[in-house]
Design a protein around this nucleic acid. Structure first.
Ligand SMILES: [Zn+2]
Ligand SMILES: [Zn+2]
Lengths: 561, 561
DNA sequence: ATACAAGTTA
DNA sequence: TAACTTGTAT
């Protein structure tokens, strides 16, 4: 970890290099460190720290959102509601948002790098959602009910104070207690709401959206309007939202009023996939981020460590043992504690560490030990040297695996420790038969890479000058337009966003590039390009066009600096 | 069984009841009995063999036309080709078919339950596909190559003579030897073709269609035109068919000509899902039914016991042990044999029981023991009481298992990189950093490949209609739309039936996002996603649209010259 | 090739 | 609750 922090501070880097560093840092840095950094960001003034990375992406997005808001003012959400469960009651604010999605989007495009107060203010999370606990003025916190049966065999859910982690079965409805120390006055309470977003706990996956697996979406059709959302809330006023820009799913519910005498509100949630679902979470641990918001402000945040599995009891026990060993290795003194607490005794009933005022178990923060997002992987800080080998490995995976093996493609993989490079930089291999195709593809590939080097301003300029057929865009944009007219399809739009948006835009550029050649190419080219349009981009593209030697399988790396 | 047979004989049932009974009967009846029944069917008189064509695809199409003509009678094929691999040569007949697809489809729909001579006559299998071996006049049989390395660690596939079962990894390309004792005369050979259908081995699932799981269909997009088909054949003349009535998937390939001196033709197949895939096969054992057909006659049939898994070697060994124990319990005398044969010695190389004339391993039938479709589960034959539980269990499967592994989305494939072929086309490899770019490039690559399959006339036509900017996009897809505004989705119909939503969304993104250009994606998607509607026609047209592959066929030879 | 992980079955 | 199955990670 020590090393990582150092490396991350270097200034004057190219975009690429920068990104790499960014990612790298995220990989090695430990949770505590991240927390600190993030906090800084939040505090920091806008425009640029981008460099800092934890999230370079985050930063950018946040800024964008802010801009939007200001533009219109209260718009606090770049999310578009997928659907509203509420039978009725749409809040004014929500409506406003829906009506101006396009604006938001546009904002994003043009404001990309603009400065703004603080990311924290805009409710929507940027590419990288903050996982930092932030009690705020209301001492916002989330807790669980005390587990009923002291000794249940097949518990539907169980909370491990030792791990500060909730283990639950898929689709079971679990009560979560939303705690506020000082409840907002009745007048302002209605403007407050709770947002819940699920993110991957491992830095490598921060930017990836958490979504249900195709199997469950497809085979488990229950008519729910937000089939892709992992998290559901039983509250009838729940609004499911999917960010048109990032594609990230979240839900919001109005801030309920505590029952007389209590300082919390209970809301029922359920998770629609296993943590292990192959085409979805794929065994990656997650964090559920709850935020208390009012208008466009985030008043409090709480991250919960959650595991959705088939055998909560079993898995809790085994994880506690594992963690126990880990800790014992690291700190000798704590060993005994671990054993005593975690292993078995507590399993069924909610354990110790229960907060005083309420009977509920408050997740972490209150506990003596059990850091919120404990760094599980020891090896995170290993050397870079490993990274290269990694890439190679990945290549091998594709060959015969089932496809889901862990992680490779999208994700870099396993985070744990070892190494890693950047997320975006996963390396894929495409085999092409025939030299002509190969060369064509190579050019396109290069143009895509080069595109990253073109300043956004130039790109925008290019696009403006580009005729109708080239209009580019990203899916989100598309969406917007849809929204504009009718919001009905939010869901689908948003849901789809996932990775395509960019590709699209990229394509268009690439297309133009390819126009030159034969039928195939011509078509493609047409799609994207438009005749030649603009300048900078085109130039760039063709520039690289390199032909290559002919070796066959040699993987040529076409790396572009 | 005894009891079951009784219940199944009741007359005067409603359609619903009837179907249920039908299935039920299938469940309880034993293989031998089925055989008898089927044999009868086979004997029935044919209706017409009209065609002799080299391209069986043609055959299929023609048949449909026939149906139309008859309107009702000899409907021998209820399958609609999903796509045709054949390159080039479109015959007049095919064109004709294209013009009447709708008719065909309607026929299918209306004839679904009509009575007809015998199921056997019509090439397509009825709801319940026969799993009875039937050598026929050509002594039709399927065998495997001798396993190369005697002791391979991670075998990609291995055949257990003891179990008469092939264990293979998902997506590995495995050579199957199609054996005919007396090869049809050159004149008639062209009218013969091979059909392969995958069915569940357990009677309870006979009537359920075997299809890829949603996860793999969704996450493993490789541009194949028949994404829902579990079984794929490398033969470029492969036609993927999905029965419009039953939804069952199968593929057909022309009967190749044996190499000089051999009595078999080698065809390469691969399975696109694990036997265990959660939303798909869901751990249910399968049988691949190969049939030698000519016109509407089934001349031979062979059922192969196959397991697609991650560790063929391990699983083979464990299954052999299990079977060994089982047999030992039943028959004391055979125990020793089992142990000796199955357990470990044979694992890697193809074992004993090898047929005399050919070096290949002929699956079962020839072997002394090892009944073709051995009932593995003791419970299958047990009392009804158990069966019910069975059903219940199964039901549970589909719902919520977790199933797959995840991740990689598109990439997986690239099969071995090690090898590669090169027929006349050199194979190149491009490495791409970043998933989006990768996916984009992959699509383009596929479109380039597919383009080769589009007749020049169509391409010219397409270009003429295409505006200056070229917006059209990918060759193949474009075509479709061109052909018929309406027909676009035929293959999709069949394929998509099950999990459309996803594909849909994906498609939409690409479409909406870059409606103008996304050709690649949109086309594909449309292809797949189209609503099931206009069936027949669509299907045919799209026939050509196939993508292709990157196989490395180099290793194995493709049998057809 | 071995060991682990985690849903499923009994 | 224990054991098994089976894909994945090391
Ligand atoms: Zn799932
Ligand atoms: Zn699958």
């Amino acid at each position: 970890m020590s090393q990582t922090s150092n490396s991350s501070l270097e200034p004057g880097l190219s975009q690429e290099t920068f990104n790499d560093l960014f990612n790298t840092i995220g990989q090695y840095i430990n949770p505590q460190d991240l927390q600190g950094i993030q906090t800084d960001y939040q505090m920091a003034s806008p425009s640029l720290h981008m460099v800092d990375e934890n999230m370079h992406e985050n930063l950018e997005l946040k800024l964008e959102c802010v801009n939007v808001q200001r533009h219109e003012q209260g718009e606090f959400s770049s999310y578009i509601p997928d659907q509203n469960f509420s039978q009725g009651s749409y809040k004014p604010e929500e409506i406003a948002v829906k009506q101006h999605p396009i604006v938001c989007k546009q904002e994003h495009l043009s404001n990309g790098l603009k400065s703004s107060p603080s990311p924290e203010q805009s409710s929507p999370q940027p590419l990288i959602v903050s996982n930092t606990d932030f009690p705020g003025r209301y001492c916002f916190d989330i807790g669980y009910e005390e587990e009923k049966v002291p000794v249940t065999k097949s518990v539907h859910w169980t909370y491990s104070p030792y791990l500060d982690k909730l283990f639950l079965k898929m689709r079971v409805i679990v009560p979560f207690r939303i705690k506020l120390q000082g409840y907002p006055s009745p007048q302002t309470a209605s403007a407050h709401f709770i947002r819940a977003v699920v993110i991957y706990r491992q830095p490598e996956y921060y930017r990836e959206n958490v979504e249900r697996c195709p199997n469950h979406i497809t085979k488990h059709k229950d008519g729910h309007h937000a089939p892709k959302h992992l998290l559901r809330c039983e509250n009838p006023q729940t609004t499911y939202v999917t960010c048109p820009v990032t594609g990230r799913h979240c839900l919001t519910i109005p801030l309920g009023e505590p029952q007389a005498g209590s300082d919390f509100v209970t809301e029922m949630f359920q998770f629609m996939c296993f943590n292990s679902c192959p085409g979805g979470l794929n065994r990656r641990p997650i964090l559920v981020i709850f935020t208390l918001e009012c208008g466009n402000q985030v008043l409090g945040r709480k991250a919960l460590n959650i595991r959705v599995c088939a055998c909560p009891g079993r898995d809790r026990t085994s994880e506690e043992k594992t963690e126990s060993k880990k800790r014992s290795n690291n700190n000798n003194c704590l060993v005994s504690q671990v054993e005593a607490q975690g292993s078995q005794p507590e399993r069924t009933s909610t354990p110790n560490t229960t907060p005083p005022s309420t009977p509920q178990v408050s997740s972490s923060s209150s506990g003596p030990h059990t850091p919120p997002p404990p760094a599980e992987e020891p090896s995170a800080s290993t050397s870079d040297g490993k990274q290269m080998p990694r890439l190679i490995k990945k290549r091998s995976y594709p060959f015969m695996s089932s496809g889901f093996e862990v992680r490779q493609l999208n994700v870099d993989r396993i985070p744990f420790n070892k190494k890693q490079k950047t997320q975006d930089e996963e390396v894929f291999t495409i085999q092409v038969k025939g030299r002509e195709k190969y060369e064509l593809l190579l050019k396109i590939k290069e143009s895509l890479d080069l595109m990253d080097l073109v300043p956004q301003a130039q790109i925008d300029k290019y696009r403006q000058s580009c005729p109708p057929c080239g209009r580019l865009k990203n899916s989100q944009n598309m969406q917007h337009s849809e929204n504009g007219e009718s919001q009905n399809s939010n869901d689908s739009q948003a849901d789809e966003v996932d990775g395509p948006s960019q590709s699209f835009s990229q394509l268009s550029r690439s297309d133009s590039g390819s126009s030159y050649h034969s039928p195939t190419s011509s078509q493609q080219s047409t799609g994207s390009g438009g005749g030649g349009g603009g300048a900078g981009i085109n130039a760039v593209r063709f520039t690289l066009r390199r032909t290559l030697s002919l070796e066959k399988k040699g993987h040529f790396h076409v790396g572009i600096p």
